[in-house]
Amino acid sequence: MHATWIIAKKELQSYFDSLIAYILLVLFLGFSGFFTWLFGSDIFMVGQASLQSFFGIAYWTLFFFTPALTMRLLAEEKKSGTIEMLLTKAVTDRQVVVGKFLAALLLVMVALVFTFPYVITLSVIGDIDAGEILCGYAGLTLMSAAYISIGLYASSLTNNQIVAFLLALSIGLFFHIIFEVLASNFTGITAQVLSTLSLSNHFESISRGVVDTRDVIYFGSIIFVGLFLSEMSLTKRNLN
């Protein structure tokens, strides 16, 4: 656990050193702020003391930002060879994978924390449903965690960051929208399976304030499978 945390801290530090963190924060807050408060179906248009419009925007912005965060995590280490230096320290493959996962997740959580003023502003304007907002944030965190673990796996497969980014985005796209679109074109068991796989269904139910164990299990299993496959893919260096 100790080594995991050291790796997470170092990765988080390098996000801030390399400006990625600042660019992400500015873009994320800019986009979500603009669409939540100023443009389109913003809060004033909806006329309710609800952050649903923010959660809707963040659902998309985080989808695009997470692959940008994860693409370098393992691909860069593999390209520069530092992975060899790292894995011959007293750490296991798993600690490396989990540490890097935590770093990206923490950065997303920092971005989300910066949107807490929205909640404060809203609570001044009207009565807010604290449970719903808490669930919305939990949903965004779980969704990001799922995409980070997918992105980490994509990053473990290649040593080219662009490939890792595109791969993560295309895998993510299936969960984000394609499964749902497909589900509406099928009937019976196929539709049910596809609809269960669709991340948007699970996200919507959580962000509406309904915490269902099925949703938590869904996100948990994506995270687990992504991390597990990343670890396998690191260990695979032994097989070729």
């Binding site: 390098s14 520069s80 060879g81 230096m85």
Partner: peptide, 13 residues
């Protein structure tokens, strides 16, 4: 203690 071939390092640290 191991010094790998080509001495890979984190250049931005």
């Amino acid at each position: 203690g191991y010094l790998p071939e080509n001495n890979p390092l984190y250049l931005d640290m």
